[in-house]
Simulated assay, not measured.
Amino acid sequence: MENNGIPLVNVPMGPGSQDEGDMVLDYMKMPSEMDSYDIPILPEPEQASDCPQALAVLEQLQHHLQTYRVGDEPPIMLLSALAEPDLDLINQILGEGEVSLTLTGETEVKAQETVLAGVWRLREFDTNGDVVSESIEVADVPSVSRQQAFQSCQPLNAEQLQIPEGVLNAPSVLIEIGEASTIYSMQTEKPEAPHVINLSLLPFSPQDHSYLDQVVGQGSVTILSRGYGNCRITSTCVDGLWRVQYFNSTDQLILDTLEITDIPLVACAAPEDLSDSYERLIEIREVLV
C-alpha cells in the first residue's frame, strides 16, 4: 500500500484513556416525579349509607356543577354543621387536586382544589389558627381571590422613586406597570386578555429583580398550581398586578412574567374542566348509592 503522506496517530482507547484531570462530567438532572390526578379511594356503599348528610352534600354539589357557569356568582356550601364522620367522608371522596390558594390578612383562608376541577374546599382560620368555618365552593377560582387580592393596594408612581445603584432595566418596567395598572383600575369591565410583561426575555440583573420586588410588594394571595412542575402565582400591592412564575420538574425557574388582570388564567378551572367534574361526580355517586 502506498504511503500518501498522511501521518498515522496511535490513539489510546479504553479505561483511563480519557483522563481530564479533576474535571467531572456534569449531567443535567432529569425529572424525578410528576404530580397528577389520582382517583380517590371511594368508601363502600355500606359506609356511605351511614353518612346521609355527606350524600346530601354530594347531591347538592352535583346540581351546582350542572348549573354553574364561569362568571356566575359562585355557589358556596357550608360544612361546619356536618358531623365528623360525614365531613371525613366528604374529604375522602373529594381528595386533593393540583391547585391550592392561601389568603393572608385579618383572617387566613386556605383553599384546596379537589380532584374535581372547579370544586374547592375552603377553611377560614382565626388569629389563633383555629378553623372557624369550612365550606365547598364551585367556581373557576375561589371568589376570595378576586374580592380581597387588591383591597390594600397602592397606586404606583415609578417616576418619583429613588433608583439604587446597579439597577438598569427595572425602572422602565415599573413605568409600564404603572401605566397599565392605571388603565386597568379605571375600567369598569375588566378585559379578558391580560397585559403581560415577560421578565425572562429582559436583561434583568439581581439588582433589578430585588428593586422590582421591593417596589411592587407582596400581596395577600398566593396560588400554587402543581402539575409537570409548579406554577407560583402571587398578588402584589399594585392594583391588578400578579407575579406568575413557572418552574420545571427540577424546580428551576423557566418563565417569569407579570400579568395585569383580575386573576391569571393559569389559576382558573376552564368551563370544560367543570363539565368534566360534573360527569365524574355522577360516576362517583353511582358507585356510592
Rank of each mutant, 00 (worst) to 15 (best):
E176K: 09
Q53K: 11
V266T: 11
R123E: 10
E272W: 00
M23H: 06
S210G: 10
L103A: 04
L116W: 04
N157E: 15
S152Y: 15
S277V: 05
I177C: 13
L101Q: 03
F150C: 01
E113T: 05
I233D: 00
E44P: 04
M77G: 13
R280W: 02
I263A: 03
Q147H: 06
L174S: 13
V266Y: 07
G21C: 03
S36Q: 10
Y184D: 02
E96N: 14
V196G: 07
T127L: 15
L288D: 04
M28V: 07
S277I: 06
Q214M: 10
E73T: 13
I93N: 09
V57E: 04
L58I: 03
A83L: 06
P271G: 00
T102N: 07
G166R: 02
P15H: 11
T234V: 12
S100V: 11
S235C: 11
V173L: 15
H64C: 00
D26G: 12
A193P: 01
P142Q: 03
Y211V: 03
A48G: 14
M30H: 15
Q60E: 10
G217P: 14
N4Y: 04
T107D: 15
M1V: 09
D208R: 02
T182C: 12
D140R: 07
P171V: 09
H64I: 00
S235M: 06
N3D: 15
A117T: 08
V70G: 00
I263M: 10
M23G: 12
G95T: 01
D213M: 13
L61S: 02
I93S: 08
L174V: 07
Q60H: 10
D126R: 11
P74V: 09
A149T: 04
